[in-house]
Design a protein around this nucleic acid. Structure first.
Lengths: 169, 169
DNA sequence: TTTGCTGTATTCATTGACGTTACAATATTG
DNA sequence: CAATATTGTAACGTCAATGAATACAGCAAA
């Protein structure tokens, strides 16, 4: 079992928004092209990030921007935006037999430990900021060759654009 | 997203086997009654625990026993028996755009960190032995009232037993 | 030989992830 | 105001995993 890709997608989105905002319009088409998923997935995820107060999205005009300093956004914040933070890491089997010595006490024995595992993961995630990722990304960019930017069809998102249904027809 | 209940079921099974082995036959019916799941689920899980070298199962005669000292069985061992230990904690979105500065480097930025998160969880799990759980269970049992044991229908698993189809019919 | 159990195949229902189409609502621009 | 680009969201469809359940061949012991 794994956490869904929504988390890595959300991280990708935030990195891209941080990188391109101001240089070009970071629309769901643009971002979908970078992440390589359907724009609707981007819009949904972006909506969750907005609800969590991590980005602002321009309705109508389009494009997203960070709502907070990248130093103040941790992976835990991003995780909470797209996953249920209350949920335990492990799914416990329902209704262990209360008339059995083991069944009656398995929760007492395990619950605290399971919660600790989750808490430790939380700490790990909370220790990494978006700024840390940005720094590493910049380092990688210095190494590598020049890549596309604002001008190509891929960058502007021309590729995935819908054929508009003519409503006046 | 959560890990499946196979993990907590496996822990429950091992605790029950450790507790009741020698006192009564720890069959899949018996265990299924304690865990409160279908005996087939128990057999499957027991099979995985056997493959991992944690228990022995008596084919034909029935019943399971620990194959190792509870001090030598960690939660990580149990986890590995029922889950894919190679799998990362987070599912990464497929094919981020290699022509985009972010898409081309997102793996370089994230992979190491994601691996660390998984490794830390592993360490946490590896720090807890079955013996630790047994100790806590005994502590709970001392507190509590007396519960069922070997003689009741629930304990012997009479309840969930299949009606045998008479093959001689 | 009968009995009780394991091992395993198969079927089914449910759930969540993810993709996709469609379209109303919204903001900008000519 | 009208045309356009974009968001927000609903509605489906597909796929994979989980977990329940039935069935039965094979094994061991009495």
């Amino acid at each position: 079992m794994q956490f869904s890709s929504r988390f890595t997608i959300a991280v990708h989105i935030l990195l891209a928004v941080n990188e391109f905002d101001g240089q070009c319009k970071t629309t769901s088409f643009f971002l979908g092209n970078s992440v390589n998923v359907n724009p609707v997935i981007i819009r949904k995820t972006l909506g969750q990030l907005k609800d969590a107060g991590l980005v602002t999205v321009e309705a109508g005009v389009g494009g997203a921007s960070l709502a907070k300093d990248p130093k103040k956004i941790t992976l835990w914040d991003i995780f909470c935006a797209v996953e249920d933070k209350k949920e335990e890491l492990f799914h416990f089997h329902e209704n262990p037999n209360p008339d059995c010595p083991v069944g009656a006490n398995i929760h007492a024995v395990m619950d605290g430990r399971l919660r600790k595992f989750k808490r430790n993961l939380q700490k790990d995630l909370d220790d990494v900021t978006l700024q840390d990722l940005v720094k590493d990304l910049r380092k990688e960019l210095k190494k590598g060759r020049k890549l596309w930017f604002t001008s190509t069809p891929a960058a502007t998102g021309e590729i995935n654009k819908p054929k508009r249904t003519n409503t006046a027809e």
